[in-house]
Design a protein around this nucleic acid. Structure first.
Lengths: 194, 194
DNA sequence: AACCTAACAGACAGTCACTTCCTAAAAGCC
DNA sequence: GGCTTTTAGGAAGTGACTGTCTGTTAGGTT
């Protein structure tokens, strides 16, 4: 069902398009590269690029998190300890060296339009997380604020990581930076970890 | 110096352009209105609209906060009690009924591209606030996270206000929603208020 | 008051991100 | 193997945004 030829073609195409795009961006700079050039380099049509990534910035900010359905999201994020869940996700992610990840992050903080797109993405993530956080007894307003603080706090930690040169693991920054946010949730997160 | 004819023309033009644009947006919808139509309605040239607002979304998210210089910002924002400072600013703002403010906010949460632009604006605000927060003894990482939590927490409160119909004052939502964030800063904010 | 110059509004042309619609082909299903 | 549905690609159009250039005018100088 999720492994038909079409899905495989789609996944492969997305990966190669993203890699080709990254090559071009690194070589000539983000703004100087047109979608048509990316499409040509990846041997697909421009419309395919738009269908798969939506926007030019989407080539860089497209994330497997976005494609997560609600059930999978609920599995990943523990409403009683969102900071811990996020940290676990980051650790899992750093273990699997996607290689393109580090190349991509640079543009988040160096290309304004990409940064904007990343913020929009985070905002969407916060909106998805908000109802889940409501499960832990938080009111709607508190859940909304907490979700924003969580995702944009993560982004802030990522920025600090980037500004420091990206040597230490990202998880360090997330753990330290978001530690104060653990207090935002009524229940004690320590009890959940084991 | 700040009251020459040119500055006055600029301020007047911005106000009328914004009002005309809002009229058109309310009438035909944001996406259906072109910059050229706005320019015609406001009796200026399209290039003037771009010079004054930068983007189409800028017509809605342009904010007097953005034009604040660093000194004025430092005066408004108390590093020891940023939540209180923000609340005070909101209260000051609600007292002066700019009239267009409430009309504008609607688009923040109903027009995706405007929401994106608003997020980008908030992100820029967080970057400006970060160094100020460093003054209160926070480390760079902590200051960055706190600044993000503050501005996007404010946005979350504003969204809740909007979703509730915009009847109660915004300050209520900000006060209640950001209350947990007061704990993020080491010094006690209560001592500052009087 | 006449003059200078620096800024600024407006006009124009060009680029490219993005959309919409269509057609052909390949995948999935029986 | 035939039928339906999905989807990749192509083509044409729209409009946001960017440069550059020119005429004008505000604001200061003598």
């Amino acid at each position: 069902m999720a492994n038909g030829l079409r899905q495989r073609w789609r996944a492969d195409a997305m990966r190669t398009i993203q890699e080709r795009a990254l090559d071009l961006f690194d070589e000539r700079g983000f703004v100087a590269v047109t979608i048509e050039q990316v499409a040509t380099a990846a041997e697909v049509s421009p419309s395919t690029v738009y269908r798969l990534f939506g926007t030019k910035e989407g080539l860089l900010v497209a994330d497997e998190f976005d494609t997560l359905d609600d059930d999978a999201l609920r599995e990943v994020l523990d409403p009683a300890d969102p900071v811990g869940s996020l940290l676990a996700a980051v650790l899992r992610y750093e273990d699997a060296p996607g290689e393109t990840a580090h190349r991509r992050v640079r543009y988040f903080f160096e290309e304004p339009s990409v940064r904007t797109a990343a913020c929009a993405n985070l905002d969407r993530a916060a909106q998805r997380i908000t109802p889940l956080l409501g499960d832990s007894g938080l009111g709607e307003l508190a859940a909304r604020v907490a979700a924003s603080a969580l995702v944009f706090g993560y982004f802030a930690a990522l920025e600090q990581w980037h500004r420091d040169g990206g040597t230490k693991p990202i998880a360090t920054y997330v753990d330290e930076g978001l530690a104060p946010l653990r207090g935002l949730w009524p229940t004690t997160p320590a009890a959940r970890r084991s």
